[in-house]
Nucleic acid binder design. Sequence first.
DNA 1: TTAACATTTAACCTAATTGTTAATTGAAAT
DNA 2: ATTTCAATTAACAATTAGGTTAAATGTTAA
Lengths: 94, 94
Amino acid sequence: MGLQQTLKALADPIRREILNMLKTGRMSAGEITEHFPVTAASISRHLSVLKDADLIRDAREGKYIFYEINTSVLEETLLWISDLKGADDHAEKQ
Amino acid sequence: MGLQQTLKALADPIRREILNMLKTGRMSAGEITEHFPVTAASISRHLSVLKDADLIRDAREGKYIFYEINTSVLEETLLWISDLKGADDHAEKQ
DNA sequence: TTAACATTTAACCTAATTGTTAATTGAAAT
DNA sequence: ATTTCAATTAACAATTAGGTTAAATGTTAA
């Protein structure tokens, strides 16, 4: 897990778009589903991949389940890629 | 292509390790293969995935084919992830 | 407590990925 | 020219991934 799970989760366009949507704020599974031409079941599994990678967190509220992005795990990925790029452009932020 | 191809290429541990190895310098397909417990044919296909993503370049020299890393395509990925992370930690390098 | 709604999980299908072995290509050496 | 070596490509098997519909779970409202 870790880097592997993160990169696998990011390697799908629907999952990346979900993360992009969540950048603006939390959304319910239903709201997320509306944006895609696939079934709720399909989106639900994408959400579970993102959740297993800890890229999103969920919170049930009544009959809705809200999802929010968790960017902390991206730090490792960013460092790994930066390091590959020549070890001359990381550690610029805390 | 672009981001999608890059992330797909990075989402495999063998391919990431190949890139890591090439960070230190160019290597022939055979030298790369020696580091992994899989066949040369298998590594060859990993190399072609990396090449299609433009993450590596190849150059034949006699009976050897040497591979070298090309990090330029990583910039797009780095920007995408940084942007996801809150748009507060990119554009630090040129 | 039953009905309705939101979401997930199960079962299934197809397509893509990864690995293997065998055959092919390209270059060098005998 | 033929053998040898490096590497790729082809053909195939096994696994993983992503989609669908149908059933199950959890919650709210009647």
